[in-house]
Amino acid sequence: MRKLSYNLWFGKFEEKVELAEKLKESFKSARNNSPLPFNISDLGMEIFGKDYYKILRKIAIEVAEEKMEKELRSDEKYVIALVKALEELEEIINVLKEKKSDLELVKGTEIQDDFAESISNLERLKEKVEKEIEVVMERIAPNLTEVAGAKIGAKLIEKFGSLEKLAKAPASKIQIIGAERSLYKALARLKKGKEAKMPKHGIIFLHGFVRNLPKNKRGKMARFLAGKISIASKVDFFRGELEEGLHDLVKKRFEELRRK
């Protein structure tokens, strides 16, 4: 019969304990497929005495810190890469659709079906990417996701470079980011002493609450939404817990503006 062996955070157990050299490493691999038939703290106290919990806590904190930092960084990078991929995909799909209808105008052949098939494949891929963005955003920025939606939230993180930068940005910048070109154009006109229209919204124009209002109210909504997005991303970055009610505020404001 094979001897039973157990992986413990401080070493291996096989009839007797073999202490690990690096506790952090053994902590990370303290995996077992079935429950331990003994109480690990009893065994540990025999070895470490009353310092058992002190040592365990220290190692647990170190391991968790390391893992957390790694996960946070990789999740943000992942969502940024996904958003970039999504934007390209949207572009490609549009181009293909355009070419397909160009072809149709000239001559109806079978090749259009191939185009249609490719387009629908790409659209399925696009949906997958969008779903994945939602899942990751829910994890790294639940409040931002609730207020702005996963896609817009992810685009904002991508534009600013990280959730930290977004959390520390002024709301006015959040309001117009993505509309830099019209902003600079307006600024250039102002410099020359001419009249100019300042952009009211950039990326956040994509938000249904902004887009679905009449033109003269979009600015108000965009400003309000940007303010709430700023708060949401701050809560996400500094606290990390879902703050209920933020989204309701945004919705209420939208209803107000729509009725007026």
Partner: peptide, 9 residues
Amino acid sequence: SAKPFKKLL
């Protein structure tokens, strides 16, 4: 979830 874990730590 790594996010709230910051505060937990």
